[in-house]
Write a protein that binds this DNA or RNA. Structure first.
Length: 571
RNA sequence: CGGGCCGUAGCGCAGCUUGGUAGCGCACCUGCUUUGGGAGCAGGGGGCCGCCGGUUCGAAUCCGGCCGGCCCGACCA
């Protein structure tokens, strides 16, 4: 397909000033470059330049999906409530699921994801293990009524996503395809020009399922992660925490009860007694569904990870203010020594060798110093229950972990039989047994990826597109309306397009400064600058947008030079 | 949903305290000049001042309600 765009006709209304609502670079630049416009909170128009980039991202995704035997189809955005009632998610999804009724009063929703629809499709058509494995994908619009849309395309309500679903007879088959999807996702990130990490993630409430998130590293990312030179990377929520510098106090000390009026936080205690927060122990209280009190003890400088807490004690949740009163325990002076009868004491495993703890006394205004596990109190369960953070030790190699922030651009997930069981989606195995499909799902945020690329590839002047995602590969800038300049520029433009380079010419009646500014803002990877002075010397200038590098090239060689540059950067 | 702030021309904003019928910059249109990094001069067009109601002779301005948005927070593929 020959691409030759004229800026005089391209619908890309650029903005000189920064829109007030834009907080992050990708949002600001997508608006300023005339690529998106807001329609409502979290809902955007995609203008022609953005749509060209999206088409390129989609093409890369399609190539990688097709290459691993995943077949494209298209599923409906509007979905009947019955399927969601079957899976149980109609009731649990909450207000994020946008619901509507048709004229007959039947309930529908806008699909935030498509597990129900695809499971229903496959259950009706696939009967035998001989038809498995089966992997299907679509690229479609999704809608999630986010409680707080923000950051432009990074967290919208309506967005484009590639989602794939696979069906297997065995866990081995699932694992095999899961690995293939994960490898494909790595290639997709590479081809998009993203600096990324595949991180171990947690599936939240579901627990225990295998999932990996692909994070584009960016300070504006919402996810916090830790990673290591050895290749290990994980979301801090999911990362195994291996604390450095432990144990600190291995000698037992005398148990002392100390009056600590008005000292309710770890910081208060540490300051008043000139202690390091690490030498105190913080006790958080939770309760189980059947009303049992649970104490979680963590190093004073650390945070309890609620997901890990639930893994250690199923269905536990942290107490609210009323609960403290109901249990009659003093928030701010809790500890593992002599808790209320029946309390389950869970302690972070990093404290296992500590022989002298500073803890609350379970009595208002009193703390205990020198509490020793085994001597002064019992711990029912030792477990990893803290949020990991930079400086902790890598669980794989022991080196100190680095911290980073990331944008989750994609995720692979082993669903197992969660949906197939509830929705009675079964096949017959080689022994004639009816069994639920073992499923996986695999998502790539297309529009979010577009924003992530910009977060990583921009400067003060605008976007610096990688060639693979740019709306077009090169722009020709005739700097004056002189006939010879225009003719030379038009000739280069036509030849570039004929040579297979996606080309643009800024043929607008604008001053040089405007053309430079817009070209930098929109971020075409290569600019061919045709000016009167250069032309009289027989040369044009080729500017590399990303590096700012400029080369002077004889007019006759400009097309070959740009084509070579573009081809070398395609992926 | 809780807390804070904001809705005035396409974009960015002033005017509101102290009511008197709307302004600035950019953008847009016309003309002349200019032409390698967002030009200059002159002229011009464009606004149910978010919506509804109230107070008042008179409301962008004061009061009430509603709608929308932004920021912070609430464990989100």
């Amino acid at each position: 397909m020959r691409t030759a765009l004229r800026m005089s006709r391209v619908y890309a209304p650029t903005l000189r000033e920064n829109p007030a609502e834009a907080e992050v670079p990708s949002h600001r630049l997508l608006l300023r470059a005339g690529m998106i416009r807001k329609v409502a909170a979290g809902i955007y128009d995609f203008l022609p330049l953005a749509w060209r980039s999206i088409a390129k991202i989609e093409r890369i995704v399609r190539e990688e999906m097709d290459a691993i035997g995943c077949q494209e189809l298209l599923l409906p955005v509007v979905q009947p409530a019955e399927l969601w009632l079957e899976s149980g998610r109609w009731d649990v999804y909450g207000p994020e699921l946008a619901r509507l009724k048709d004229r007959a009063g039947r309930d529908f929703c806008l699909g935030p994801t498509h597990e129900e629809i695809i499971t229903a499709l496959v259950r009706d058509e696939v009967r035998s293990y001989r038809e498995l494995p089966l992997s299907l994908y679509q690229i479609n619009v999704k809608f999630r009524d986010e409680m707080r849309p923000r950051f432009g395309l990074l967290r919208g309500r309506e967005f484009i996503m590639k989602d794939a679903y696979s069906f297997h007879a065995t866990h081995e088959s699932l694992q095999e395809h899961y690995d293939a999807q994960a490898r494909a996702y790595g290639r997709i990130c590479d081809r998009l020009g993203l600096e990324w990490r595949a991180v171990e993630a947690d599936s939240g409430q579901i627990g225990g399922k295998v999932t990996t998130e692909f994070m584009a590293l960016a300070d504006t990312g919402e996810a916090e992660l830790v990673h290591c030179a050895c290749g290990f990377a994980a979301n801090v929520e999911a990362a195994e925490a291996v604390l450095a510098g432990r144990p600190r106090n291995t000698e037992p000390a005398e148990l002392r009860k100390v009056h600590t009026p008005d000292l309710r936080t770890i910081a208060d205690i540490a300051e008043s007694f000139d202690l390091d927060e690490r030498d105190t122990v913080k006790t958080m209280a939770g309760k189980t569904k059947d009303g049992r009190l649970v104490f979680f003890c963590v190093p004073g400088d650390r945070e309890l990870n609620p997901v890990k807490a639930q893994r250690a004690v199923p269905d536990v949740e942290l107490l609210d203010e009323d609960d403290f009163a109901a249990f009659g325990i003093p928030k701010g002076s809790l500890g593992p020594v002599s808790p209320p009868e029946g309390t389950l004491v869970v302690a972070d495993r990093s404290l296992a060798e500590e022989r002298s703890w500073v803890v609350g006394a379970n009595e208002e205004d009193y703390h205990l110093f020198g509490a020793c596990p085994g001597r002064d109190f019992a711990v029912d369960l030792w477990a990893d229950i803290v949020v990991a953070r930079p400086g902790d030790l890598c669980p794989k190699c022991g080196a100190a972990l680095e911290g980073a922030r990331g944008i989750e651009v994609s995720q692979v997930f082993q669903l197992g039989t969660r949906y197939s069981e509830k929705m009675h989606a079964t096949f017959t195995d080689e022994n004639g047994q009816e069994r639920p499909f073992i499923m996986g799902c695999y998502g790539v945020g297309i529009t979010r990826s577009l924003a992530a690329v910009i977060e990583q590839h921009h400067d003060d002047a605008g976007i610096c597109w990688p060639v693979s995602v740019a709306p077009a590969e090169a722009i020709v800038l005739p700097l004056s309306a002189d006939d010879d300049v225009v003719q030379a520029a038009e000739a280069i433009f036509a030849e570039l397009a004929d040579a297979g380079v996606e080309s643009v010419i800024d043929d607008r009646d604008e001053r040089a400064g405007v053309k430079f500014a817009d070209a930098d803002l929109i971020g075409w990877p290569y600019q061919v600058v045709v000016g009167r002075k250069g032309l009289s010397a027989g040369v044009v200038e080729v500017k590399h947008r990303a590096t700012g590098e400029r080369e002077t090239v004889p007019v006759g060689q400009a097309v070959d030079r740009v084509r070579a540059l573009v081809v070398s950067q395609r992926s």
